[in-house]
Design a protein around this nucleic acid. Structure first.
Length: 877
RNA sequence: GGGCGCCUAGCUCAGUUGGUUAGAGCGCUGCCUUCACACGGCAGAGGUCACAGGUUCGAGUCCUGUGGCGCCCACCA
């Protein structure tokens, strides 16, 4: 057995250990195994670049889940993958080419541009995969998937085909959100609204009948007046009595349009008159349809004015606005201009203001798919955790609108639709058609558009397992168990996986959705490159190792909305890894050569640590089962540091103990460590595996990753041992506290007298040596009674046991008396509260018996303690 | 406009169905270079649980209202 190095050096151990896991085949489950399967599909990171700290959180939690399940004996599969991320990746590559070559994608052409994106993807994916390994992800790399791979592509086509056949995807002309920079349609979810400073302009629309009169219309977008096809007023608005049924002249273009009446108009806003531009505003579009107004398309795909705009043709939106305001002013048609803050939609990816636009797009009838998806969550077939998110899910699903899935991009799954050049037939097929099934013509043109990235992501839980083929993987590992991801993509992704999963496979894609919080900086700010507050997980790992970052996430990922990453917190988890390392180092050094067989019987100290371990195991397994990783981590942190290190190991150090119990207790120290390593392994795989490798006794498995996760053993719960040892600690703590109060140096000699009935103090007497070393006493005496109490200072650690310290050894006794008085007062208050409770017939008759009994016991304890202090204070008054 | 969440120690947050004297980490104070660890040890201080009502034998926990903060959805030009 070689020992552990003095200092824990994560950089040195992590790579070889990861390789050892890989080599052992631990990550790769056998689909033919008879063990119960457990499946988790990794949310595929976008191949836009490198992983950020949010990914690190995701991967940590998922790896904890997966390692825990694997150790529990499940046939565990974690499928890794990456996402082509259509619009996002296309944009970063465009930017890259722009920066390096000053070219646009149109300069390169579709084919060449796609070549560049694939090259980008290769590099980015490589980086991402190596980062995942650095974090410690125990995913099955043999099943690595990419959303544009052949398998997932087949799934995409099959799905599109089936939806088309069932009338659930169709080509429609509709108003959609358009990004003029990306030059593509967007789904509603891809548009983010934010407040912007703008203006409200009041413009004169002269009456056709009497141009000296005018209707004054308020708008934030004067440039769209070029495509106005009506002006609307509220039917009940008396102010506009004279205007009803009239026509007005659109300024600058002199087109005559009607004044319509619609209750949609808000009389309070602006002037009460609203210009209607059905081509460029979703609400106007609806009004236009209702009133059968003509629709004018004013902008081209880059939001520049087209021929509809006459002399304004070619101007951008922004330039046109300026020019039109100027022209209106010049012609005396501008009535006013006020500052106005309002919400404007932006492209989620490139932050360009979107332009609502009418165009032909493919739409999925989401409402039909949503119905069973809602039911699956209502009936509990799918559980969403934390539960609060279910309501959000229902809210969105019940108000779902058609999902625009076509994108005018180049990077993505080509829509499997062809048009016949001869008879214009639309052909939707899984395999590329060669002739038109209607007219046999060979001039077929594929739809140039690609699908929304989330369309292929929506199939991910089963497309990665081989669907639509009936593969063994699919049979064994589907439906999957858990979908673990951030709440920010509940609608984008989770909802769509549920809808498409149910529709395509007839089964829920997963049984549980666990939504983790978002990573923020220490001030609660979102991390972003522009703010400069981004923390690179790889940098943290390089400095302090993967384990401490993982432990940090587990300790801090509460069920809230965000997890803040702070320097001091990271330091804390680093210290914890160090603590474990050193404890292991000490135990291994001290107890080298000890074997398991030395255990003969359980002494109270062993009983106590075993009991504490069983309690911890019980609580940890409950916490993990309920996805409360923070709780599991905290329990283990506390057990390791406070119970195992600060108490148990310290006990083993006492020289008086060593003489007669060394071999036995040493062996317990090792065995508890061994279980502790298994408990900590899912959270901190590297350091635990490294220590595991040095254990003299490895009962279960050569590699910790394959060792069984500890389960609570009721046979190792010992009430007496636990109580005895806790009683001893109470005495030790009380003396230590006095030492603190009196500022007595640990070097100073102290004498303690333990007073109590022999029965009660027998164990303390037996452990006199330990008591002395733990409380740093020079002398300890045991007595049934103490006659000359005045020369002592009393501490009352437990009912029935009093501990006295020699007065003259303490110096200023008044400090202690003051403190005792304070304690007594607090105690008195608590006793009074308890007595009032116990005296109330309502409490005694209504509260459960065990609560009443608990209060009674506690009250008795407090009273006995209080009496002791009172008596002592009186004696010393 | 609709919805969700938060307000507990100086800071960041736990606190499961209401039930013993409300917890942790960090920070702070004092003492300690004790033979695993100063990335350490021992001890300590610090909270009217945002506020106001209510339900209950009993409220940090449930209900109503008020104030403050955050997020999501919808997008009145």
């Amino acid at each position: 057995m070689s020992s552990l190095s003095d200092r824990f050096d994560p950089e040195k151990i992590e790579k070889p250990l990861y390789q050892a896991w890989l080599d052992s085949g631990a990550f790769k489950p056998d689909p033919k195994s008879t063990k119960k399967p457990f499946t988790l599909i990794m949310p595929p990171p976008n191949v836009t670049g490198v992983l950020h700290i949010g990914h690190a959180l995701t991967m940590t939690i998922e790896d904890v889940i997966v390692r825990h399940r694997r150790m529990q004996g499940f046939n565990t599969l974690w499928v890794p993958g990456t996402d082509h991320a259509g619009i996002a990746t296309q944009m970063v590559v465009e930017r890259d080419i722009q920066k390096k070559e000053n070219k646009t994608k149109h300069d390169l052409g579709r084919e060449e541009f796609l070549k560049r994106v694939w090259a980008w993807k290769e590099e980015s994916q490589g980086t991402i995969l190596s980062q995942l390994r650095t974090i410690g992800c125990s995913a099955d790399w043999s099943r690595l998937a990419f959303t544009l791979d052949e398998g997932p592509a087949k799934a995409v086509r099959e799905t599109f085909f089936r939806l088309y056949k069932d009338g659930l995807v169709s080509k429609e002309t509709a108003m959609i959100q358009w990004c003029p920079r990306c030059r593509t349609a967007l789904s509603d979810l891809e548009v983010k609204f934010g407040e912007q400073n703008g203006h409200l302009w009041k413009i004169r629309y002269r009456l056709k009948k009497d141009p000296s009169q005018a209707l004054i219309v308020a708008t934030t977008r004067p440039e769209t007046l070029l495509a106005d096809t009506a002006v609307a007023i509220h039917p009940d608005d008396e102010r506009f009595e004279a205007f009803r049924g009239q026509e007005v002249i659109v300024p600058l273009v002199d087109r005559v349009i009607p004044i319509i009446q619609d209750t949609y108009v808000d009389r309070e806003f602006g002037t009460g008159a609203l210009k209607i531009t059905p081509g460029h505003d979703p609400n106007d579009y609806e009004i236009g349809k209702k009133h059968k107004l003509p629709l004018l398309q004013l902008f081209d795909d880059q939001a520049a004015i087209n021929e509809t705009g006459g002399k304004y043709k070619g101007l951008t939106r922004e330039a046109a606005r300026k020019k039109i305001v100027q022209d209106l002013t010049d012609q005396g048609l501008l009535e006013g201009e006020t500052a106005h803050r309002h919400n404007v939609g932006q492209c989620d990816r490139c932050k360009t203001n979107v332009e609502p636009r009418v165009s032909q797009q493919w739409f999925v009838d989401a409402a039909v798919l949503a119905a069973p998806a809602i039911e699956a969550v209502e009936t509990g077939k799918i559980k969403i955790l934390p539960k609060e998110w279910e309501k959000t899910y229902f809210e969105w699903m019940r108000n779902i609108r058609p999902w625009c899935v076509s994108r005018q991009l180049w990077w993505g799954h080509r829509i499997p639709v062809w048009y016949c050049g001869k008879c214009a037939e639309t052909i939707v097929a899984v395999d590329d058609p060669t002739v038109c099934p209607k007219c046999q013509a060979k001039e077929l043109v594929q739809d140039p558009d690609v699908l929304d990235t989330w369309f292929s992501s929506g199939l991910w839980p089963f497309s990665t397992l081989g669907w639509p083929d009936k593969t063994l993987d699919l049979k064994t590992f589907y439906p999957t168990n858990v979908m673990e991801t951030g709440f920010d993509i509940l609608f984008f992704w989770v909802a769509r996986m549920i809808m498409l999963g149910l529709r395509m496979t007839g089964e829920v894609p997963f049984h549980t959705v666990y939504l983790h919080p978002m990573v923020r900086d220490e001030y609660g700010q979102k991390m972003s490159k522009t703010k400069g507050n981004v923390k690179d997980p790889l940098e943290i790992i390089q400095v302090q190792g993967a384990d401490s970052l993982r432990m940090y996430f587990c300790l801090n990922a509460y069920h809230g909305r965000d997890v803040r990453v702070t320097e001091s917190g990271l330091e804390g988890s680093r210290n914890f890894v160090n603590k474990l390392w050193n404890a292991a180092r000490f135990v291994l050094m001290r107890f080298e050569g000890v074997s398991k067989e030395h255990i003969k019987r359980e002494d109270p100290f062993n009983q106590w640590i075993w009991t504490a371990l069983q309690e911890t195991k019980q609580e940890v397994s409950t916490a993990l089962a309920e996805y409360r990783f923070y709780e599991a981590a905290q329990l283990l942190y506390h057990f390791t540091w406070d119970t195992y290190c600060s108490r148990f190991i310290e006990i083993t150090k006492a020289p008086e103990q060593m003489a007669w119990r060394q071999a036995e207790k040493d062996s317990t120290a090792l065995q508890v460590l061994e279980e502790l390593l298994r408990l900590l392994h899912p959270i901190m795989p590297f350091v635990t595996e490294e220590i595991w490798g040095k254990l003299p006794v490895k009962p279960e498995s050569k590699l910790l990753i394959n060792a069984p996760f500890p389960v609570m053993d009721p046979k190792r719960v010992f009430k007496e041992g636990k109580e005895q040892v806790e009683g001893l600690f109470a005495v030790v703590d009380a003396i230590r506290t006095q030492r603190g109060i009196y500022d007595i140096s640990p070097a100073l000699e102290m004498t303690a007298v333990v007073v109590g009935a022999e029965k009660v103090i027998a164990f303390l007497r037996e452990q006199a040596g330990l008591l002395k070393s733990m409380a740093r006493l020079s002398v300890v005496e045991f007595k049934e009674a103490l006659p000359d109490r005045k020369s002592y200072v009393m501490v009352a650690p437990r009912p029935g046991v009093q501990v006295f310290l020699v007065r003259k050894e303490l110096g200023e006794v008044e400090i202690a008396l003051e403190k005792m008085k304070k304690d007594a007062a607090a105690l008195k208050q608590a006793i009074d509260r308890a007595r009032i409770k116990l005296a109330s017939p309502d409490f005694v008759s209504n509260a459960p018996a065990e609560v009443v009994a608990g209060v009674k016991d506690q009250c008795a304890d407090m009273e006995s303690k209080f009496r002791t202090i009172e008596t002592y204070l009186k004696e010393n008054a």
